[in-house]
Design a protein around this nucleic acid. Structure first.
Lengths: 127, 127
DNA sequence: GCCATTACTTACAAAATTGTTAGTTACTCA
DNA sequence: TGAGTAACTAACAATTTTGTAAGTAATGGC
């Protein structure tokens, strides 16, 4: 997200919706293109440096990784540890509240798996 | 979503990610601005007409409602019943696979509630 | 014939997100 | 002196999503 126009209808609608529904609020927090992948890898490895995340996250660019990490940090889902070295070393890891998301993951995956299978069947049917 | 450019990096990344992670796939299916609200109201009322959905979904326009419903239908989350009357009557309701999402809802809400509370505290702290 | 009704669609515009390319910083090591 | 490194940032462009405003169709009732 770049800065948003405070008073655009678009932004007003988003605000209204996320303020009134905590489930949508949740989806918004993790809905960025690369966010769930980042969370996933941080969960798997515990702590990762910028470049390590970049290698694992196929297709991501420096810029997007930086943006997504910054948002995750601002949302308190990820912590950023800077070591005063040169070249720099920066380590990212999950916060506790981010870890609280993990139990929901399997349910999301299962539904996705099921839905995908169902869609595949429908595709076949319509041949 | 309007039609996508098949071979844009943007689209390729999305495809790749959603193809390789069912949890992200799930989030994508329900991530449209108004989709969760629509699903929510259909769950609450069982069946709703276009205009009924529009009244309940504060801020939505005809166009957006139409778009979101069309995607939900294409994704098999919503069924569309047309009655051959004039003026037209069209009724929307949830499919079974959409209903399978409902058990995940509370977990999403709880996390959102918790995260929001935590953020509020942080706001206070930094004053 | 004219209006009202419902569920849309169309053409356009604004806003938000994502991607591309080329830096920058500050220090270390050869 | 000059290259190399890690973790970024900046300027810009493309793509995607969302919103605005104005129509359309078919029919019943006046």
């Amino acid at each position: 997200m770049a800065k948003r126009k405070e008073n655009s209808t678009n932004n007003i609608n988003r605000e209204y919706i996320t303020t009134n529904c905590d489930a949508i609020y949740t989806i918004c927090k993790i809905g960025g293109r690369w966010k769930m992948m980042i969370l996933f890898y941080l969960e798997e490895y515990g702590t990762l440096r910028f470049n390590e995340l970049k290698e694992k996250t196929v297709g991501i660019t420096d810029r997007m990784l930086s943006l997504q990490l910054k948002e995750l940090e601002a949302d308190n889902l990820v912590t950023r540890q800077v070591y005063a070295e040169v070249p720099p070393r920066v380590e990212y890891s999950l916060t506790n509240i981010a870890k609280d998301l993990l139990p929901i993951w399997p349910a999301l995956e299962d539904w996705g798996t099921k839905h995908r299978a169902l869609s595949a069947v429908k595709q076949e049917d319509s041949k």
